[in-house]
């Protein structure tokens, strides 16, 4: 049985349907990437899993248990953490407080502690008392990832963690990924940067206008296939 499964997942914003029957699976320790054009429904997919958008209970299964209707605050306690698009750090909390609040609802003990997160991103220790708006974009992204790790997730959902960052900074951030995976954490990446996504993902799902348009292992997919799945024909 897969660790996480979405089954016929749909999502709405009012009358607007953003997702149409998405079926995906995620195995323990696996990294999958969701790619697709703007507005394809990638972020909506992550928000649905994280409990910010609610669907039917059995459209999202964690270890076979239906969690699609649970509120976000419960989902994180079940071991699913979201690094939201645009970082969204708490501006009135310091860097360290942002990390600490990540572990607010933590019930189980796990590999990630404040010390270990600070070891993963040493700059966060140096700037522990800074206000987050004074950090650079890359540092802010590190806080956002560290904050999510503090809940000791078994599944880490990352929404556009390379967006708006310089290539060298992106490389820094992706360098942390193997060490996160080394703890047995499964990762779902939403990426617009297809090349980056192909490099790290075990499998890729491509979304097009709310529907799944392509699935496969990066090495099995041709450039042409991806282009068609991305932009349509």
């Amino acid at each position: 049985m897969a660790l996480l499964e979405t089954h016929n997942l749909t999502a709405f914003y009012g009358d607007f349907q953003a997702l149409y029957g998405i079926d995906t699976t995620l195995e323990k320790g696996e990294t999958i990437a969701i790619i697709g054009a703007n507005g394809a429904g990638k972020s909506t997919f992550l928000k649905s899993i994280a409990g910010l958008i609610h669907g039917s209970a059995d459209s999202v299964l964690l270890d076979g248990n239906p969690i699609g209707a649970r509120p976000a605050a419960e989902i994180v306690k079940l071991g699913i953490a979201l690094v939201p698009e645009g970082r969204r750090l708490f501006p009135s909390l310091t860097v360290e407080e942002n990390l600490l609040i990540g572990g607010y609802g933590r019930k189980t003990s796990g590999p990630w502690t404040l010390d270990r997160v600070q070891a993963l991103f040493p700059i966060l220790k140096e700037r522990r008392s800074s206000a987050t708006p004074t950090l650079s974009g890359g540092q802010q992204q590190m806080v956002a990832i560290g904050r999510a790790l503090m809940s000791n997730p078994c599944i880490l959902l990352c929404d556009e963690i390379s967006l708006g960052l310089a290539p060298i900074v992106i490389a820094d951030i992706y360098a942390a990924l193997p060490r996160i995976k080394a703890e047995g954490t499964s990762v779902v990446l939403v990426e617009q940067d297809v090349v980056q996504a192909m490099k790290v993902a075990d499998r890729v799902y491509c979304f097009q206008e709310g529907r799944l348009s392509l699935t496969g292992r990066p090495r099995d997919l041709t450039r042409d296939q991806i282009h068609r799945a991305y932009f349509g024909t």
Binding site: A73, P84, L100, G102
Partner: peptide, 24 residues
């Protein structure tokens, strides 16, 4: 205190606070 952090985080960004496990 942790609860004070939760107060400030909720006030900053209600949605993300919920992602942290804060029951607003």
């Amino acid at each position: 205190t942790p609860v004070g952090r939760a107060f400030r985080a909720t006030s900053d960004d209600l949605e993300v606070a919920q992602l942290m496990g804060v029951d607003h």
